[in-house]
Amino acid sequence: MRKVSHEHLLLIPLVLFVGLFVFYPLSCVVAQSFVGSRGELTFQHYLNAFTQSRFVTPLKNTLWFAGICTLIGAVGGTFVGLLASRMSPSLRNFLLSLYSIPMTLSSLVVAFSFIVLFGRHGVFNILLSRYLGLPKFNLYSWQGLIVTYSFYNIPLMTLTMAAVFLNLDKSVIEAARNLGAKPWQAWVYIIVPALAPGFLAGVSIVFAGMLAAFGTALALTGMAMNLFPLQIYSLVSEGELNLPQASALAVMLVMVIAFSLFVLNKVERWLKPEAK
């Protein structure tokens, strides 16, 4: 026990690192979001963010975009997760391993693959127009971005939901059925409440990620799609340099993400059977 105090010295690198490379720069962002052009204290940048349409529109777009992407990811991931939970263990491990690869994949590589597959002269579009006579799929549009980002979101949600389905206690469902519950009753009163917390945890990860996503969008459509993170990026890149405004938008983005996570977490806790 006498060494305990020495051993806590081992936390020093962590504390230094987090202090210097996390807290310090983040506090600079917060501080500078309140600094005006002549160095005075101002709320102008936040006012701009709420009143100027060039900032309000992208925020609305991003909320919609993240919502739709999350919905598709959630539905797709739940479906694949359910299928995976019904497979034999070896097959399931194989599929889930495969579905964890996109997580580490560079956003630009995904952009490249989707350009080759779905771009103007992409393989998929040649098939569509030549053999089916259908109009081409436009990758460089909102739909295109949604399809591309689903390549991240569906696998992410699949991993969560497969675990949730596997942890589902089947004996409780059987007990309910034996006590005379109809299938829909078993779903409404047993299965859905049991799945909901894990589902919401997955949804939070996807939604938070999508609120801040801009890499693939930048590579595919440049600045054409008016997303909030892209707006922040354009304010710090050479084109239109306005760092204090970008800082204010960044603080707002953190607030929006934190608020969404907070709400989803509250709902998740409220639904958890043992918390009731």
Binding site: L26, V29, S204, I232, S247, A250, A258
Partner: peptide, 20 residues
Amino acid sequence: KTLPLIFPPIIVGIAFLRGF
């Protein structure tokens, strides 16, 4: 698990730009 979600790359990027 939560912090990377609240401070995603766009925020880390701007923080490094402002801080250093």
